[in-house]
Every structure is written in C-alpha cells, then in structure tokens.
Computed example of a mutant assay.
Amino acid sequence: MTIQKPFSQACENNKEAILQIIKTVFSQPTTVWEIGSGTGQHACHFAENLPHLEWQPSDRPEHLAGIHLWRDEAQLANLLPPLSLDVADLLWPCERIDAVFTANTLHIMSGDEVRLLFERLAVYLAADATVCIYGPFNYAGAYTSESNAGFDLWLKERDPQSGIKHFEEIMVLATKSGLELQADNAMPANNRLLVLRKRA
C-alpha cells in the first residue's frame, strides 16, 4: 500500500515564527529531541535552517512512516531517522537528552500523559538541558481568546481526555521535574512558546 506524505497546514503557518525563537535558544551544537514530530514538517524545516543541530524526530509508531517520507525527500545529513516513542513508555530509546522540542502535543494528550511526560523528562534530561514547548495554554483558569475556547471544545468532543492545559499546572509539573521557566513567548494565533531549563 502506498503511503501518502502527510501534511499539516498549522505546521506551515507556524514553522517560521517558531524558528525565530528556537534559533536563539538552540544556538550551540547539540542533539534536539522532537517529541511528537507528527507529519515531520517541523523536523525538516528546523534541521535545514539549523545545520549546527542534530534533529531527532520521534512519535508513536503509526506516525513514523509519514515522517520517513518527509525525511527521505529532505535529504538532510543532520536529520536523524525517526524513533518510536510514546511518552508513557517506561524506557525511552536513549540514555540522556540534552535538548527537547515539542509542538502542539500537550493539548492532544490527557492530563495523565502530560504528567508522565514530565516524569520521564526528570529521568532523561541532562543537567542544563533546554526544553521548548509550543502550543496554546490557559492562564489564570481562562482562555486567552475565543478561538482557543472553540478549539478546546473541538478537542474535547474528539477526545474528552484532551484539551488545552493550564499554564500554572504545567509549571507545577515542570518544577517537580527540576525545570525552571526561562521565557514565555507570545506567538501568532494565540499560541505560546515556553522555554525551560533543567536545574544543574
């Protein structure tokens, strides 16, 4: 069966705005683990524009074939083959992680999955590791826009366990995992890009 290369319009819309932030955050050579690479579009764009990085895509097994198609077309030496990774996996396919990027993942995950993500990061992150998280968040228990409120309703209709997460609750999980907030960047379309760093 022929697999069609997946495409996300959201990735096309936000990739350049994200790049402008992460090129300053990930300014030194390192390997960035992308958790939940989805279609693979972000991985290709960032690996192409940040040649000093090794970019490690990862996602659940059902998404890997699509990521391979994007990677095969891109032909980038610093874009590594995607790895199978579910945040709930007790053992991740690595010994340590120096940098993490994840986009549009937390709101499609359940609260328990988000908690597990941060528990695993506490185990696998190296000292001084940097974590970038992109997506929508609620602040002080409220939506930041009507469009986010509508998006959250759509998410919950699709999966009652999913939904936009509260910034303050994410910060509690991050702190328990040894992460400190470095920056909370406002992004287009009512999204944010959180930059966190592991305490040494």
Rank of each mutant, 00 (worst) to 15 (best):
T39G: 06
E180H: 10
W92D: 03
R96H: 15
V195N: 09
L179F: 07
P136G: 09
W33F: 14
K5E: 07
R71Y: 12
L85N: 12
K5S: 09
L106N: 00
P6E: 04
E157R: 11
T31P: 02
L76Y: 04
R60Y: 10
A126H: 07
E180V: 14
L155R: 14
T31D: 05
L85K: 14
G36Q: 00
S8Q: 08
L125N: 13
A126K: 07
M109T: 07
P188W: 05
W154G: 06
H52D: 06
E48L: 09
I133L: 15
A103L: 11
Q28G: 03
H52G: 08
S147N: 08
P61Q: 14
L153G: 00
R158V: 10
T130Y: 09
L80I: 03
L50E: 09
L116I: 11
D159W: 05
L19V: 06
N138M: 14
G135M: 14
F46S: 02
R96Q: 12
V32G: 02
F26E: 06
A74Y: 06
C132S: 15
E62F: 11
S58H: 13
L181M: 10
E157D: 13
Q161T: 14
G135W: 11
F26T: 10
T24R: 10
T105G: 09
N185D: 01
R71G: 05
L69P: 09
G135A: 14
C94S: 12
S110D: 01
V32C: 03
N138K: 15
T102P: 06
N14T: 11
L106K: 00
L79V: 05
L106P: 00
N148V: 07
G111M: 06
A174T: 05
L196P: 04
P82L: 02
E180Y: 08
P51M: 10
A43D: 00
R71W: 13
L121R: 07
P93M: 14
E113P: 00
V131C: 13
L181W: 02
A200C: 15
L193Y: 01
V25S: 08
R60G: 03
E180P: 01
L53M: 03
L90S: 15
T2Y: 14
C132T: 08
E62M: 08
W33S: 06
P57H: 11
H45R: 02
S37P: 02
I22L: 05
R158M: 11
A200V: 15
E168F: 01
K5W: 07
E180G: 15
A129E: 10
P29D: 08
T105D: 06
V195K: 05
I108K: 01
N14R: 09
K5A: 09
Y124C: 12
I67L: 12
M171L: 11
S58Y: 10
F26C: 08
Y134T: 01
S8D: 04
H166I: 05
T30Q: 11
Q20S: 12
Q161I: 00
A140P: 04
R199C: 11
H63E: 08
L69E: 10
R60W: 01
G36V: 04
G150F: 02
R192Q: 07
T39V: 01
D86S: 15
D59W: 01
L117D: 09
D128R: 14
R120E: 12
L125P: 12
P160G: 02
M171E: 07
R60A: 13
A149G: 00
H107T: 13
Q41T: 07
P29E: 07
L179A: 11
R197A: 12
G150L: 05
T144Y: 01
A183N: 11
